[in-house]
Design a binder for these strands. Structure first.
Lengths: 240, 240
DNA sequence: GCATCCATTATGTATATACATATTGCCAGC
DNA sequence: GCTGGCAATATGTATATACATAATGGATGC
């Protein structure tokens, strides 16, 4: 514990509560102890508890309501920041019909010599998926995904012919951190064919890695037609 | 003023200081009054002032240092969210020499019929720039930029042969909101030549619009070699 | 001139207290 | 059973106070 020794009391209280929320002990909607109780639990004044809990409210982790109490916030579907682009809602927002076509699913071990896959698997197995997102029947994006079955064991039972892996994960696994790497490639034969593009056409590639409290959840690689698709992100200065 | 009537005292103090910073009265690096002085200015206790100023520090707008005082934060080079990519520091981080070559500067009115340019200009004139970012002498990215001279009049005097427009703006103009639109294109003749690529090579295009408290500041379009460059963004779920 | 020490200063944390305010849930009255 | 109103409750805000801590800048000593 790095915070537990040096940090100030209200910071430790905050970290403690945060850990319970992120760890899943306190699920969304859970009511947390009232300030008076936390105050006896931590043996401090209400002002100190208030500072810790208000900070969590500012950070959006909990919601506070007078007289009612404080509750773990329900996670937003959409991040306002740089979304985990929700392809389905983007397509339906354009008035087109959305479908996901699953091309293959396979349970396998991490590839030998691939350190990133080994870290993702965390000693367990991986679920490897390939599929296509369709807008009005036409291919809109290709998806290659790896899911850590250690982090999301329920994924083994999910039917990804019915729900796209991205939508399923958003629903079933909380995430705390993500990283996008965006680049551009020229479509090679198979990709061009799958996306109905001329060979060599510019494509946008998004590779995303997702964490939950330090634990790897999933890797995904999405390929979009470059000129037809735009990735949009709105954001403010934010923190370090 | 929507905040000035109903809001609590510390919120009004916070909003007041925030307005001075965003309005430019207190530029980056400016030292703000010590808590004792704010306390007499607003006629309240230090705890109240502290709450307001600490909140601004949490939000990253100011930096506080014991004994030294509180200072308006210099905008971070790197946003943790989806950066305003700072091309220069990215290049030097790779151990290569950075240079910006200014190709053209022109002061002009917004193009007739272009609603976005008209909004950017806000009734004033625009500064239109073209240039190239060089890594070890080789072209790394092309930049086309429009700056609203109404929002940043000092830009008219800046020498963009010495400082790249992006770096100059980060230093001199605070921003509160930005939007990136990312797509991919095939390099046409001039772009391919400028970036030393084969014609048709995939390129990453970032178009960014930047605001300060609702006012448009600048538009920029950056073109990168698609396979050699990766845009990286790390982020969390964030707020609504 | 230079390094070291120390008082001063400004922020950081914590407490006890007081009153304000939004809401819930109960209770009275019909 | 339904409704209106009231009391209890949990958070929200503000104050006065106290001591901790980091760091500056000047004074001191050589």
């Amino acid at each position: 514990m790095s915070l537990t020794d040096t940090a100030s009391l209200h910071q430790r209280i905050r970290a403690d509560i945060e850990a319970r929320i992120l760890g899943g002990d306190w699920p969304p909607g859970h009511r947390l102890p009232v300030e008076a109780e936390l105050m006896t639990q931590y043996g401090c004044s209400r002002m100190t508890v208030n500072k810790a809990v208000s900070a969590l409210a500012d950070a959006g982790l909990i919601v506070r309501r007078r007289r009612a109490g404080s509750f773990v916030a329900r996670p937003r579907i959409h991040s306002a920041v740089l979304d985990i682009p929700d392809i389905q809602s983007e397509i339906t927002a354009r008035g087109e019909a959305y479908a996901f076509r699953l091309l293959s699913v396979r349970r396998r071990a991490p590839a030998r010599g691939d350190a990133d896959e080994a870290e993702l698997a965390g000693g367990g197995a991986l679920l490897a998926l390939r599929g296509a997102h369709l807008a009005s029947g036409r291919p809109f994006a290709l998806e290659e995904r790896l899911i850590s079955l250690r982090a999301a064991p329920a994924a083994a039972e999910a039917d990804f012919a019915l729900v796209s892996p991205g939508a399923w994960l958003l629903e079933h696994v909380a995430w705390t951190e993500a990283e996008n790497r965006i680049s551009a490639i020229n479509a090679d034969g198979p990709v061009a064919e799958a996306l109905a593009l001329d060979p060599g056409a510019a494509c946008l590639v998004v590779r995303r890695r997702t964490w939950r409290a330090g634990e790897r959840i999933t890797n995904v690689r999405l390929v979009f037609p470059g000129e037809a698709y735009e990735l949009v992100a709105r954001f403010g200065p934010g923190q370090a």
